[in-house]
Simulated scan of single mutants.
Amino acid sequence: MAIILSSWSENYRDSSDSKSLLAQFKGDVIAIASDEKIALLGAMQSLFEGSMYTFMFLWTPALSPNEENIPLGFISATFMLSSMLGSSIASRLLAHSTPKVESYMQIIFAISALTLLLHILTNFPLPSAGVKGGNILFAGCIQLFGFCTF
């Protein structure tokens, strides 16, 4: 923090532009509204980040609804490994000019939605045992697989 504070300059807008904050926001809204791709990218990013942060807060109670003794460290490391694998696959896909990003991102979002749906699907046909403690249930293992795929 000390190095950053002493060596980085602040990133201000153009100093010759003396617009008020409201005028700056108005210009930003016009820029977003004028280009459909920017608006769609913003919506897509917001929805993905919203689901990701909801997932980050709720994965522990989702995998242990009856306070099962689940290996939290192992599961967290598995999530990090899954994230790393996803980044590696994405960088390999982006290295090629074909297929276009738009074509396979639709597939990726569909897979993401289906893997998050696994939690709902495993709770109905595979009810919990109702016993506190114990190991992770089979439904929890399926949900963990879905979470890692997500």
Rank of each mutant, 00 (worst) to 15 (best):
A31S: 15
A31C: 14
A31T: 15
I32M: 10
K37C: 13
I38D: 00
L40S: 03
G42W: 00
A43G: 07
M44L: 00
L47P: 10
F48Q: 09
E49V: 15
G50M: 07
G50R: 00
Y53I: 11
Y53E: 05
F55A: 02
M56H: 02
F57S: 11
L58Q: 06
T60G: 13
T60M: 12
P61D: 06
P61W: 02
P61Q: 05
A62L: 13
L63W: 10
N66Y: 01
N66D: 06
E67Q: 12
E68M: 03
E68A: 12
E68C: 03
E68W: 04
N69A: 12
N69G: 02
I70Y: 09
P71T: 11
P71D: 09
P71I: 14
G73L: 13
G73A: 08
F74T: 13
F74Q: 12
F74E: 11
S76E: 12
A77Q: 11
T78F: 04
T78C: 00
T78G: 07
F79L: 08
F79I: 01
F79E: 03
M80I: 14
S82Y: 08
S82R: 09
S83Q: 10
M84Q: 07
M84V: 15
L85V: 15
L85Y: 05
L85I: 15
G86S: 09
S87D: 00
S87I: 09
S88M: 15
I89S: 01
I89C: 05
A90F: 11
S91Y: 09
L93S: 08
L94T: 01
H96S: 14
K100A: 14
K100R: 14
V101C: 06
V101K: 07
E102F: 00
E102I: 07
S103N: 11
S103L: 13
M105N: 03
I107V: 13
F109S: 13
F109K: 10
I111A: 01
S112Y: 09
S112W: 05
A113F: 05
L114P: 03
L114F: 07
L114K: 02
L114Y: 05
L116R: 15
L118T: 12
H119M: 01
H119K: 08
L121I: 11
T122P: 02
N123A: 07
F124D: 04
L126W: 06
P127V: 04
A129M: 08
G130E: 02
V131T: 11
G133D: 03
G133C: 06
G134Q: 00
G134I: 07
N135F: 08
I136W: 09
I136N: 05
F138D: 08
F138G: 02
G140H: 10
C141Y: 12
C141E: 08
